[in-house]
Design a protein around this nucleic acid. Structure first.
Lengths: 281, 281
DNA sequence: GCAAAAGTGTTCCCTTTACACCCATGT
DNA sequence: ACATGGGTGTAAAGGGAACACTTTTGC
């Protein structure tokens, strides 16, 4: 290791970028903000910002998350003072290619946040400069589920919510798949992949749900994130039979129509054993 | 996002640290180097160094790995020019607490490398300033396998290699578990945990083996990394029955004693499906 | 012959899967 | 009545754990 001479190492800017995922209208969505400056002015980007002098990395990520969404994140590795309101936050990966930002050398520590469906994004003052975008749109995921059949089970093509939302689809600049700024498409893809694999063996899928939820709602989270259709009967048996995954909350709800469903809260277990199995292909 | 004013963000030093793991004498070991300067002068630390101005993060990690071990790493995400000789290299996590280095603000992007057993570490010139240390020693892992029974299945207590090695055990300064410099114990623990879980569902365990190896040698890798004893018969059936995991290399060897064993090479598969199951408790 | 490591066959059991069937509500 | 989603029962198929048994070397 070379000696630590303050003039012997190149200075870097360090930022945190956030992949904030949620499930809206049966589709996996991520929070993007419109860039106001060059480069990539007008393009969508992941929210993020500089790490401050006195701040650790997860602290910076939690601060950005609050600023962008109002969510108080729960980072299992963070010290107690951070209040939790259900959102999950974890470090994803770090991106530092020399040319990833044309202006200077920037190393970005990306974080992954999972949140329940929120009313509407509140950007820094400007309302239409932030939106929840389906990841399928941003990544051009024709391969989201492999086959066309799975496409009928979920997403914009399904029967449940094709009505457009104000400010949602018609997003101005680009037509077709929207290209994210910088290397943010790569970061988003890595975050989505992490979420997809992590709900297999952990109870993290509950982070997409409100505090109380039904088995059916949890199943629809898995279906949206994985892009598959799951057998409701076997899913019910599986999740209720895994100790510590779900605890009954007492009430029932009929908000999905049909027979009233039991309400559950997330149990204490974080690791699922045996794991949920993601269908092949 | 605030505007990019070069004077508006605090400058950071960015380093890469390496968790280089290997299996020696049936124990999981990591490469540590003796620090020559303050702070932590004389203490063991993970190898690492500054990221250069024109270098990306995986490039810096690969360079450090060559400098410390002579290994040419294979990073699946890296561009072609990097030659592979069997070692595996991947990004682990990034550590950036404001006080992790008392002298300045340093963000370290830790990488995990898995290597076959090497003759001897070659530090930057100095021979006894680098060594392979059993992770058990560095982490005080009484909980390595949970029960005492598993301890008999492997490690220094086993029957196969209790003879001491020159320069190995008696390491000077500290008595008992050696405390690593900085937050390197945390980084090492994260790297070990990553390796332990990743060999479950990927073919990465072969990165600990020489180019040609037997099923028994591969099994001893799993036993050393997990700290458990595995049934040789079921293990054999499992790995030879997983398509793409192993391909016959043609010859046999008797270097382990007993009946000659078939030699294999790592197959093309990187993901194991179904995964290897780590015994509970 | 005996010890040691490599392989094969077989049995038991648990999980997953597929699907028939019943339950409780809204319209 | 009927559509919709919630929940239970059950039988077939697949994979893992445990272990008896055979094979091939060195001493």
């Amino acid at each position: 290791m070379p000696p630590y001479d303050p003039s012997a190492f190149p200075p870097f800017a360090v930022t945190v970028d956030l992949v904030v995922l949620t499930v809206r209208r049966h589709a996996l969505c991520t929070l993007v903000v419109r860039r106001g400056e060059e480069p990539y002015r007008g393009r969508w980007a992941l929210p993020g910002g500089f790490v401050r002098e006195d701040e650790d990395l997860s602290g910076a990520a939690a601060r950005e998350l609050v600023e962008e969404t109002g969510l108080c994140a729960h980072d299992p590795a963070a010290p107690p003072p951070v209040p939790s309101n259900g959102a999950h936050l974890e470090q994803l990966a770090t991106y530092g290619a020399p040319d990833r930002d044309p202006r200077m050398r920037v190393v970005s520590v990306a974080h992954l946040a999972l949140a329940p469906d929120l009313p509407a994004p509140r950007a820094g003052g400007d309302a239409n400069s932030a939106r929840w975008a389906p990841v399928e749109e941003l990544l051009g995921e024709d391969v989201l589920a492999g086959t066309a059949e799975a496409g009928t089970a979920l997403g914009a093509g399904g029967a449940e919510g094709s009505g457009d939302e104000a400010g949602g689809g018609g997003d101005g600049k680009e037509g077709g798949p929207v290209a994210l700024a910088f290397d943010h498409a790569r970061i988003l893809a890595d975050g989505v992949e992490r979420a997809r694999s992590k709900i297999e063996y952990s109870s993290l899928a509950t982070a997409f749900c409100p505090p109380e939820f039904t088995v059916g709602e949890l199943r629809r989270v898995y279906e949206a994130v994985w892009g598959v259709a799951l057998d409701p009967r076997n899913f019910h048996r599986k999740v209720t039979g895994t100790p510590g995954f779900l605890v009954p909350a007492g009430g029932t709800t009929t908000r999905q129509g049909g027979r009233p469903a039991q309400l559950f809260r997330a149990g204490g277990a974080t690791l699922l054993n045996p794991p949920m199995l993601r269908p092949e292909v």
